[in-house]
Design a protein around this nucleic acid. Structure first.
Length: 131
DNA sequence: CTTCTTACA
DNA sequence: TGTAAGGA
Protein backbone atom coordinates (compact mmCIF):
# COMPACT_ATOMS: atom_id res chain seq x y z
CA UNK A 1 0.00 0.00 0.00
CA UNK A 2 1.05 3.65 0.18
CA UNK A 3 3.76 3.28 -2.41
CA UNK A 4 3.29 5.73 -5.30
CA UNK A 5 6.88 6.60 -6.24
CA UNK A 6 8.29 3.49 -4.71
CA UNK A 7 11.81 3.15 -6.10
CA UNK A 8 13.69 4.86 -3.29
CA UNK A 9 11.75 2.96 -0.64
CA UNK A 10 13.67 -0.22 0.08
CA UNK A 11 11.19 -1.38 2.67
CA UNK A 12 8.21 -2.97 0.97
CA UNK A 13 5.14 -4.93 1.75
CA UNK A 14 4.46 -8.39 0.44
CA UNK A 15 2.17 -7.21 -2.34
CA UNK A 16 4.74 -4.72 -3.62
CA UNK A 17 7.52 -7.25 -3.62
CA UNK A 18 5.31 -9.86 -5.21
CA UNK A 19 4.32 -7.49 -8.00
CA UNK A 20 7.90 -6.38 -8.51
CA UNK A 21 9.14 -9.95 -8.81
CA UNK A 22 6.20 -11.24 -10.77
CA UNK A 23 5.05 -13.74 -8.19
CA UNK A 24 2.06 -13.89 -5.88
CA UNK A 25 2.10 -13.09 -2.20
CA UNK A 26 1.42 -16.77 -1.62
CA UNK A 27 4.67 -17.66 -3.32
CA UNK A 28 6.56 -15.36 -1.00
CA UNK A 29 4.88 -16.96 1.96
CA UNK A 30 5.68 -20.37 0.56
CA UNK A 31 9.38 -19.54 0.35
CA UNK A 32 9.21 -18.11 3.82
CA UNK A 33 7.74 -21.36 5.10
CA UNK A 34 10.51 -23.20 3.30
CA UNK A 35 13.05 -21.11 5.17
CA UNK A 36 14.43 -19.28 2.15
CA UNK A 37 13.53 -15.82 3.33
CA UNK A 38 12.81 -14.29 6.68
CA UNK A 39 11.22 -10.91 6.26
CA UNK A 40 11.11 -8.74 9.33
CA UNK A 41 7.82 -8.31 11.03
CA UNK A 42 6.35 -5.09 12.22
CA UNK A 43 3.50 -6.47 14.19
CA UNK A 44 1.97 -8.96 11.80
CA UNK A 45 3.05 -7.16 8.67
CA UNK A 46 5.98 -8.51 6.71
CA UNK A 47 8.61 -5.98 5.76
CA UNK A 48 10.92 -6.83 2.90
CA UNK A 49 14.21 -4.98 2.89
CA UNK A 50 16.59 -4.86 -0.04
CA UNK A 51 18.30 -7.90 1.40
CA UNK A 52 15.12 -9.94 1.21
CA UNK A 53 14.33 -8.76 -2.27
CA UNK A 54 17.88 -9.54 -3.29
CA UNK A 55 17.58 -13.01 -1.87
CA UNK A 56 14.31 -13.46 -3.69
CA UNK A 57 15.98 -12.53 -6.94
CA UNK A 58 18.64 -15.12 -6.27
CA UNK A 59 15.97 -17.67 -5.45
CA UNK A 60 14.14 -16.91 -8.67
CA UNK A 61 17.34 -17.18 -10.63
CA UNK A 62 18.14 -20.50 -9.03
CA UNK A 63 14.71 -21.67 -9.97
CA UNK A 64 15.15 -20.54 -13.56
CA UNK A 65 18.32 -22.55 -13.73
CA UNK A 66 16.49 -25.59 -12.52
CA UNK A 67 17.64 -25.89 -8.94
CA UNK A 68 15.32 -27.23 -6.29
CA UNK A 69 14.23 -25.27 -3.29
CA UNK A 70 16.47 -27.43 -1.16
CA UNK A 71 19.48 -26.65 -3.29
CA UNK A 72 18.69 -22.97 -3.25
CA UNK A 73 18.25 -22.99 0.49
CA UNK A 74 21.64 -24.65 0.81
CA UNK A 75 23.24 -22.01 -1.36
CA UNK A 76 21.73 -19.24 0.68
CA UNK A 77 22.60 -20.88 3.98
CA UNK A 78 26.20 -21.29 2.91
CA UNK A 79 26.28 -17.74 1.74
CA UNK A 80 25.05 -16.60 5.13
CA UNK A 81 27.37 -18.92 6.99
CA UNK A 82 30.59 -18.41 5.10
CA UNK A 83 30.28 -15.59 2.60
CA UNK A 84 32.90 -15.65 -0.09
CA UNK A 85 34.55 -18.77 1.27
CA UNK A 86 36.01 -21.61 -0.72
CA UNK A 87 33.65 -24.20 0.62
CA UNK A 88 30.77 -22.16 -0.63
CA UNK A 89 32.15 -21.78 -4.11
CA UNK A 90 33.23 -25.41 -4.26
CA UNK A 91 29.75 -26.50 -3.33
CA UNK A 92 28.23 -24.22 -5.92
CA UNK A 93 30.58 -25.57 -8.56
CA UNK A 94 29.64 -29.14 -7.70
CA UNK A 95 25.94 -28.41 -7.92
CA UNK A 96 26.32 -26.53 -11.16
CA UNK A 97 28.16 -29.46 -12.68
CA UNK A 98 25.49 -31.82 -11.50
CA UNK A 99 22.90 -29.64 -13.10
CA UNK A 100 24.88 -29.46 -16.33
CA UNK A 101 25.10 -33.21 -16.45
CA UNK A 102 21.44 -33.50 -15.76
CA UNK A 103 20.70 -31.18 -18.65
CA UNK A 104 23.10 -33.08 -20.90
CA UNK A 105 21.24 -36.26 -20.10
CA UNK A 106 17.93 -34.60 -20.87
CA UNK A 107 19.35 -33.38 -24.14
CA UNK A 108 20.37 -36.89 -25.08
CA UNK A 109 16.89 -38.09 -24.26
CA UNK A 110 15.43 -35.32 -26.40
CA UNK A 111 17.73 -36.14 -29.28
CA UNK A 112 16.66 -39.75 -29.12
CA UNK A 113 13.01 -38.87 -29.09
CA UNK A 114 13.43 -36.46 -31.97
CA UNK A 115 15.38 -39.02 -33.99
CA UNK A 116 12.69 -41.60 -33.40
CA UNK A 117 9.93 -39.24 -34.41
CA UNK A 118 11.82 -38.24 -37.53
CA UNK A 119 12.16 -41.86 -38.44
CA UNK A 120 8.41 -42.31 -38.16
CA UNK A 121 7.89 -39.10 -40.07
CA UNK A 122 10.04 -40.37 -42.90
CA UNK A 123 8.33 -43.70 -43.07
CA UNK A 124 4.87 -42.17 -42.97
CA UNK A 125 5.71 -39.57 -45.60
CA UNK A 126 7.23 -42.21 -47.84
CA UNK A 127 4.21 -44.43 -47.39
CA UNK A 128 1.89 -41.61 -48.44
CA UNK A 129 4.02 -40.64 -51.42
CA UNK A 130 3.86 -44.16 -52.73
CA UNK A 131 0.13 -44.29 -52.34
C1' DC B 1 6.97 -36.23 -4.26
C1' DT B 2 7.78 -30.93 -5.33
C1' DT B 3 6.15 -26.31 -6.22
C1' DC B 4 2.93 -23.34 -6.40
C1' DT B 5 -2.03 -21.33 -7.15
C1' DT B 6 -6.71 -20.79 -5.83
C1' DA B 7 -10.10 -20.48 -2.59
C1' DC B 8 -12.47 -20.55 1.69
C1' DA B 9 -13.04 -19.89 6.56
C1' DT C 1 -3.32 -16.52 7.79
C1' DG C 2 -3.84 -21.68 7.94
C1' DT C 3 -5.01 -25.08 5.20
C1' DA C 4 -7.40 -28.01 1.86
C1' DA C 5 -7.46 -29.07 -2.75
C1' DG C 6 -5.76 -29.17 -7.17
C1' DG C 7 -2.69 -28.55 -11.22
C1' DA C 8 1.73 -29.34 -13.46
Amino acid sequence: MQNPGEESTSLKGIQDVAAELGVTHRTLRFYEDQGLIQPRRVGQTRIYSRREVGRMQLILRGKRLGFSIRDIREFLDLYDTEPGHEGQTAHLLARVRERLEDLAQQRRALDETIAELRQIEQEAATHLARG
